[in-house]
Simulated scan of single mutants.
Amino acid sequence: MSIVPLSAADIEVRINELSDLLHACVMDGASVNFVMPYAIEDAERFWRKKVLARMDDGLLTVLGWMEGGRVVGSVQLDADTPPNQAHRADVKKMLVHPAYQRRGIGKALMAAVEQVARDKGLTLLTLDTRSGDKGEPLYRASGFEVAGIIPGYSRDPFADVYDACTYMYKQLA
């Protein structure tokens, strides 16, 4: 069990594992931008088009939790911000495979992504989550504070209803 940075080459080699991870989380109800129907091919497309395509600029960091030789958790740090926001980054796609949840993996990934941000000299982290989602207590326990809630922000993955979104932040300095 370890947390490792995933390079573009690592993601390419582990694209099936990462696609399975994302697909399993979405099917388990994670509100991470996708709605039903959601096929494994959609998950692979995400990793190829939204992650691999952005790895060259060094502004997107992907961390993976390795267990049993597989990636069963991941989180992204996106530092692609405007010039007046170069001090901050967004925490994105905090994923732990449903079969591995409630084991401290999410907490460890959040601590690791925070350390990466500190190492990059960043002083502010932001994220958003569906209000009331099971990730929200993790973010609060990791020291994130609520900046605000926007009602009706995003479509529920399973139903044609719109859920509120909670925006959160953490000062690192």
Results as ranks from 00 to 15, higher is better:
1 M>A: 12
7 S>T: 13
8 A>R: 13
13 V>G: 08
14 R>H: 08
15 I>H: 11
17 E>Y: 04
21 L>E: 01
21 L>W: 02
22 L>G: 04
26 V>G: 02
27 M>I: 12
27 M>L: 15
28 D>S: 12
35 V>I: 14
35 V>G: 08
36 M>A: 13
40 I>V: 08
40 I>R: 10
41 E>I: 05
42 D>F: 08
43 A>H: 05
46 F>V: 03
47 W>N: 06
49 K>F: 10
49 K>S: 14
50 K>C: 13
52 L>T: 06
54 R>I: 03
59 L>S: 02
61 T>E: 07
61 T>W: 02
62 V>I: 13
67 E>P: 04
67 E>Q: 14
70 R>A: 15
70 R>D: 14
70 R>P: 09
72 V>D: 09
72 V>F: 04
75 V>S: 03
76 Q>G: 03
76 Q>F: 04
77 L>D: 05
79 A>P: 04
83 P>E: 07
83 P>W: 06
86 A>S: 15
88 R>M: 12
90 D>G: 07
93 K>I: 12
95 L>I: 01
95 L>W: 03
96 V>D: 01
99 A>L: 08
100 Y>C: 13
101 Q>G: 01
102 R>P: 07
105 I>G: 04
105 I>P: 09
111 A>C: 10
112 A>W: 04
113 V>N: 10
113 V>W: 06
116 V>Y: 00
116 V>R: 05
117 A>D: 02
124 L>C: 06
127 L>Q: 04
127 L>H: 05
128 D>F: 08
131 S>I: 00
131 S>K: 11
132 G>T: 00
133 D>S: 14
135 G>I: 04
137 P>Y: 02
138 L>R: 02
145 E>T: 12
145 E>R: 12
146 V>K: 13
147 A>S: 13
155 R>P: 01
156 D>R: 00
159 A>N: 14
161 V>I: 15
161 V>R: 15
169 Y>E: 13
170 K>T: 06
